[in-house]
Measured scan of single mutants.
Amino acid sequence: WIARINAAVRAYGLNYSTFINGLKKAGIELDRKILADMAVRDPQAFEQVVNKVKEALQV
Rank of each mutant, 00 (worst) to 15 (best):
W1Q: 15
W1T: 15
W1I: 15
W1R: 06
W1C: 15
W1F: 15
I2E: 09
I2L: 06
A3N: 08
A3I: 06
R4S: 11
R4I: 15
R4Q: 14
R4T: 15
I5E: 00
I5N: 00
I5A: 01
I5F: 05
I5K: 00
I5V: 04
N6G: 09
N6L: 04
N6C: 14
N6P: 01
N6E: 15
A7E: 15
A7P: 01
A7L: 07
A7N: 12
A8K: 04
A8V: 03
A8I: 03
A8W: 04
A8S: 04
A8G: 02
A8D: 01
V9Q: 00
V9A: 09
V9N: 00
R10P: 01
R10E: 10
R10K: 14
A11I: 14
A11P: 15
A11G: 08
Y12P: 00
Y12Q: 03
Y12C: 02
Y12H: 05
Y12K: 03
G13H: 05
L14W: 04
L14K: 00
L14H: 01
L14N: 00
N15S: 12
N15A: 07
N15T: 13
Y16N: 01
Y16S: 03
S17D: 11
S17T: 06
S17K: 15
S17L: 12
S17N: 09
T18W: 04
T18D: 05
T18E: 05
F19G: 00
F19D: 00
F19Y: 02
I20K: 09
N21C: 12
N21Q: 15
N21L: 14
G22H: 03
G22N: 03
L23K: 01
L23T: 03
L23H: 01
L23E: 01
L23F: 05
L23W: 03
K24V: 10
K24N: 08
K24G: 11
K24P: 04
K25F: 09
K25T: 10
K25S: 09
K25L: 10
A26D: 01
G27Q: 11
G27H: 14
G27M: 08
G27V: 05
G27Y: 06
I28H: 04
I28W: 05
I28R: 03
I28A: 05
I28Y: 09
I28F: 08
I28V: 08
I28D: 02
E29I: 13
E29H: 14
E29M: 14
E29T: 14
L30Y: 10
L30E: 14
D31P: 09
D31S: 13
D31V: 11
D31G: 08
R32V: 15
R32H: 14
R32A: 13
R32S: 13
R32P: 15
K33W: 13
K33H: 07
K33C: 08
I34F: 12
I34R: 12
I34P: 05
I34S: 08
I34W: 14
I34H: 12
I34K: 11
L35W: 04
L35S: 01
L35T: 02
A36V: 09
A36T: 03
A36E: 02
A36M: 08
D37I: 07
D37W: 12
D37T: 12
M38V: 05
M38K: 04
M38R: 02
M38C: 07
V40P: 02
V40Q: 10
R41H: 12
R41S: 12
R41K: 11
R41F: 11
R41M: 13
R41N: 14
R41W: 10
D42P: 02
D42K: 13
D42C: 08
D42T: 10
D42L: 10
P43Q: 05
P43A: 07
Q44M: 12
Q44F: 13
Q44T: 07
Q44V: 10
Q44R: 11
A45V: 07
A45E: 10
A45Q: 12
A45R: 12
F46Y: 01
F46L: 03
F46P: 00
F46H: 00
F46Q: 00
F46V: 01
F46S: 00
F46G: 00
E47I: 06
E47T: 06
E47D: 06
E47C: 05
Q48T: 06
Q48H: 14
Q48L: 15
Q48I: 14
V49Y: 09
V49K: 02
V50F: 02
V50A: 04
N51S: 10
N51W: 14
N51K: 08
K52F: 09
V53M: 04
V53F: 01
V53A: 13
V53T: 04
K54D: 01
K54G: 03
K54L: 11
K54E: 04
K54Q: 12
K54C: 04
K54F: 11
E55R: 10
E55N: 12
E55M: 11
E55F: 09
A56T: 10
A56Y: 08
A56D: 04
A56R: 05
A56W: 07
L57Y: 07
L57R: 04
Q58Y: 10
Q58K: 10
Q58V: 08
Q58A: 12
V59Y: 13
V59W: 08
V59L: 11
V59F: 14
V59N: 10
